[in-house]
């Protein structure tokens, strides 16, 4: 795994974010003075998109030992362009069937089941080794970042996310509690594996699986609470 890409990626990101901030300030100033400022907003969005593309590109670079550094660029561009589009498009104002948080939980459950299900199916056909667990972690994390960024920007474009209210907080607290129960119970299971002197690869996969399961329980709890209980 190579980490040499991080510093140039950080410089790239910082430079474009600074440019975007300057353009946004100019846009606000123009707006205050009553002049048209949409083109400045677009330029700021484009700068953010170009700058942000460094993040998935850097992750891709590290995950593939520098072979596919470019693969994150188009994805980053699409994600950030969609994000910028979500700022300016006119979205429907009428009543929604579900809140943004509920839709977000549903999309996240689907993404976890698909990505981790697919990755686990591949893992089970090979011996559980530590190096494989590391690749599994990096690969699934990159895929989750990409899928979540794209799906959530699309959700935000379709309808403006609502402000969090007290019921959202209550649902969040209760769901996190459920996830925590799974996490602590699972840690006891992993400890049992440690005492049974299980191989490191098995322990690594057990911990990864535990994190995923706890997150899945938290998100699924949100869905249940939103629809049935709270």
């Amino acid at each position: 795994m190579q980490f040499g890409f991080i510093i140039p990626a950080a410089i790239w990101l910082g430079a474009f974010v600074a440019l975007a901030v300057v353009l946004l300030q100019a846009s606000r100033k123009a707006g205050r003075e009553g002049r048209k400022s949409r083109h400045l907003m677009w330029l700021a969005g484009a700068a953010l998109a170009l700058g942000g593309a460094a993040i998935p590109a850097a992750i891709q670079f590290m995950a593939t030992d520098g072979k596919m550094w470019w693969a994150g660029v188009p994805l980053g561009l699409v994600a950030l362009a969609l994000g910028f589009q979500s700022i300016r498009v006119e979205r429907p104002k009428g009543p929604a069937l579900a809140t943004f948080r509920e839709k977000s939980a549903a999309v996240s459950v689907a993404a976890i089941l698909l990505i981790y299900g697919w990755a686990t199916a591949g893992v089970l056909q090979a011996p559980l080794e530590l190096a494989g667990a590391f690749g599994f972690l990096v690969g699934t994390t990159v895929m989750m970042i990409i899928v979540m960024a794209l799906s959530h920007t699309v959700l935000a474009i379709l309808r403006e996310p609502e402000k969090e209210d007290e019921r959202d907080k209550l649902v969040g607290w209760r769901s996190t509690r459920n996830g925590y129960v799974v996490m602590t119970s699972g840690v006891w299971g992993v400890l049992a594996l440690v005492f049974a002197q299980a191989p490191l690869g098995v322990l690594a996969y057990a911990l990864l699986g535990l994190f995923v399961l706890a997150e899945l329980v938290r998100l699924a709890s949100e869905l249940v609470y939103y629809r049935l209980a709270v």
């Binding site: 009543p95 402000k163 007290e166 019921r167 049935l228 209980a229 709270v230």
Partner: peptide, 17 residues
């Protein structure tokens, strides 16, 4: 200043505000 879904939940007695 809450979401419509919260009003629905209060109205149906599922959520005590």
């Amino acid at each position: 200043d809450v979401t419509r879904q919260t009003v629905v939940a209060i109205e149906q007695g599922r959520y005590a505000p």
